[in-house]
Amino acid sequence: MEGPADIVFRASGLTKVYRNGALEVHALRGIDFQARTGEFIVILGPSGSGKSTFLNIVGGLDRATSGEAWFEEHQLTALTERGLTQYRRDHVGFVFQFYNLVPSLTARENVQLVTEIARHPMPADEALALVGLSDRADHFPAQLSGGEQQRVAIARAIAKNPQVLLCDEPTGALDSATGIKVLEALTQVNRAVGATTLVITHNAAIRDIADRVIRFADGRIVEEIVNATRKAPSEVSW
């Protein structure tokens, strides 16, 4: 299944069924999807629409029930546990709603945690500079605000120079001013590193900063909008 050279992700007929005893929950009901290199995609949808499940599968954290997902020449749906770990390690940067920083490591050390095991990392300080946190590098997570913690998480995600950046509700736990800062960091990184960026959000206002917007509902992609122009995060309001 070869596609155009600048296609990073391809998925076709992706389904995911959670079984809980006799109960079956269809989280994904056949997703077809493609993403190009450097594209900034916002994924919208209500809770339980399958967007996180989708992101987890393309991020190598979860397995599909059927269908195929490819990252470049790697068929994610065919990789072993070990292969998925290697895929996350080499290619994917994650940002989550609750930051998931290691509390016993300072900001810089949290970034170094990743650069130590990455193949082509950037210096940790450079990653922190990209998110505007150079002066907070020696602080522990407990000493940082929520927005700062999330920017550390972004720095940690991009420090490995990932091909893809996957963000699940990165502004979900933040107020709007802080959220804007985080989004700015994300768009800037997207431009600087050229990583294909997928951002899940509840917040429809964010859609304007994307190249493309995908809407999930009931396990399916129900809408896809390509923005002719992208707004800067500071221009959106919520």
């Binding site: 290691v102 509390p103 016993s104 490591l105 300072t106 050390e109 949290n110 170094q112 945690l113 130590e116 020696d138 522990f140 997570p141 407990a142 000493q143």
Partner: peptide, 28 residues
């Protein structure tokens, strides 16, 4: 309140070259 950590393992680091996972161990 989140567990607060302090640097205070500088001397350990001077003794042995620690990776970040090693730093986690020492700080815990």
């Amino acid at each position: 309140a989140p567990a607060s950590y302090r640097q205070r393992i500088g001397w350990v680091r001077r003794l042995v070259q620690l990776r970040q996972t090693g730093v986690m161990v020492a700080r815990h």
